[in-house]
């Protein structure tokens, strides 16, 4: 009898845990990608060129200076890659950043900050 109760509780707990796990890895997040001027502390990084952006190996598209685009991502850990375009040709100069999002978090990413390796390149909001 006791054993049965323990097994059942364990089973229910396991299912709830699986549920939480599925929730976390299946949750959608919105990531806004800015190619705009940004001031962090005293330093201002200015957007000057056009970039192609990939998020989680999915091409988001070309973002000109002063523009923004958005990506919908699923799960916890993500990768963003930006590559500069000069006169319609990819320069081959890639910048890669990795980031993690908690459930219910969305993020704004700034390209000039990524290029300049600034610490505050990502802004996560709930």
């Amino acid at each position: 009898m006791r054993k049965q109760i323990i097994i059942r509780t364990a089973l229910v707990t396991a299912l709830i845990l699986i549920g939480i796990f599925l929730y976390v890895i299946g949750k959608e997040h919105k990531v806004v990608i800015d190619n705009r001027d940004i001031s962090i502390g005293d330093i201002t990084y200015s957007a000057s060129t056009t970039y192609v952006v990939w998020v989680d190996n999915q091409e988001i598209g070309v973002i000109k200076k002063g523009e923004r685009n958005a990506a919908i991502v699923t799960g916890v850990s993500h990768k963003i890659v930006v590559e500069e375009i000069k006169s319609n040709v990819l320069t081959g100069e890639k910048h890669e950043k990795r980031f993690r999002l908690k459930t219910n978090e969305s993020a704004t990413v700034n390209i000039p900050a990524i290029i300049n390796n600034a610490n505050e390149w990502i802004d996560k909001t709930n």
Binding site: L22, Y23, G26, T74
Partner: peptide, 15 residues
Amino acid sequence: WQIVGISGMLLAILI
């Protein structure tokens, strides 16, 4: 809740 993909489907089943 905006849970997508196969994990979304499994979660729907679980609920």
